[in-house]
Computed example of a mutant assay.
Amino acid sequence: MNIQLLGMIVLWTFLYGYIIVASIDFGAGFFAYYGKMTKQDHVINNIIDRYLAPVWEVTNVFFVFFFVGLIGFFPSVAYYLGTALLIPGSIALVLLSIRGSFYAFSNYGSKDNKVYLFLYGATGLLIPAALCTVLTISGGGFITEKNGAVQFLAGKLFSSLYSWSVVIIAIISVLYISATFLTYYANRAKDYGALAILRRYALFWSIPTILASFLVFVGLRDNNVHFYQRIIDKYWWMFALSLVCFIVASLLILFKRNYGTAFIFVMLQYFFAFYGYGASHLPYILDPYITIYSGFTVHTAAVALVIVFILGLVLLIPSLIILMRLFLFNADYIQGKK
């Protein structure tokens, strides 16, 4: 395996970790607001609060690692994406700031304020919608280079079926991943009132998840037929495995069995789909301007970055395991006894 491919795998792993962890966080925020509006907050919000309290500060670690690594491994990405991501990137930063403010204010008694809770819930859906623009643009067709100047085709992006299909699946995936995890979490806490509600959420968002996935394929075929064809010819089996994992997870939740195993299958569902998407996109980082070879940093810097990022994973994963053992999977904590 060459250093370029290894570097890309490391970055993709950080991004996958962020998708799973952040989706649980973002979806929980929306469900907290929805519970307040439907007067079910007294049933489900205790579970949500017990999950969010110890983990919200570490959610963005994966995100920071990915973007720092992306610029470090592929410096030319900043040149091409700097203009394109100015608007969505700025929006995402503002939304992240608002979300961070909620966490701060919630410690001073504002957690039940409907305005703060609305902003908290809304940002949980708008942040992934803004951030997924990166994946859309990387597929090609939304950036041109003329006379050495990069032009962002904003009109084409906002009128593209592929662009909106990615936004839709990003939002739906946040709700689906979060609902399936919180279902497991409520069951582990033996909070059967919250379990019944969160299980309904998980089942409700399962069908839109698979429909949105097919919509992405339709949009991708119209936007980049070569990218679409690589998926069909070489990596169809990864998406087939993703579908199998989706079916297994949905059946387990439907029949009220092994919620923890169901969430593992949800993670595998997104693992196969996400890595299949990434593999079919190679060697392009930004089609057709940057590949993992043409836009890569110098070899010495690349080796150092790979070592640092692997060490980062080695430190981060055990830290998350300790956090989970102390809080998320501690019987007394999740049952509200401490």
Rank of each mutant, 00 (worst) to 15 (best):
T13F: 04
S173H: 08
A249S: 08
I127T: 03
L328K: 14
G193N: 07
V218W: 00
G7Y: 00
A262L: 14
V68L: 13
K39N: 12
Q4P: 02
L96G: 00
S90V: 15
L320W: 05
Q229A: 13
Y185L: 05
T123S: 10
V64I: 15
L85Q: 00
L305W: 02
Q229F: 04
S206L: 07
H299N: 10
F118E: 07
F63S: 04
L126V: 14
V43M: 11
W12P: 02
L93K: 08
V61A: 04
I168D: 03
L316C: 05
D25V: 15
A301R: 13
L320M: 10
N2A: 14
A301H: 12
I44K: 00
T297S: 03
F65I: 15
T300W: 03
L311P: 02
L93A: 10
P318R: 04
N224D: 12
S110F: 09
F246L: 08
L252H: 06
L198Y: 01
V314Q: 07
I210H: 01
M1V: 15
I310K: 01
Y293R: 15
F31Q: 09
I47Q: 09
N187V: 13
T133M: 08
A154N: 04
C245I: 12
V244F: 03
F296P: 02
R188V: 10
H299K: 14
Q269N: 13
A84L: 00
S178T: 01
S159Y: 03
Y185M: 02
Y162A: 07
T13P: 04
M1Q: 13
L313C: 07
F227P: 11
I143S: 06
G27T: 11
G312F: 00
V298C: 04
G69A: 10
P88S: 15
N46I: 15
S106Y: 06
H299Y: 13
G72C: 06
H299W: 08
T59F: 07
T13G: 06
A104Q: 05
N46C: 10
A84N: 00
G278A: 12
L286H: 11
T83Y: 05
L315I: 14
V10L: 05
Y192A: 08
S250D: 14
H226V: 15
L6S: 11
Y185W: 02
Y284C: 06
F263R: 10
Y34E: 11
E57S: 07
M37K: 10
A78F: 14
S294E: 03
W205N: 06
L182P: 00
H299E: 15
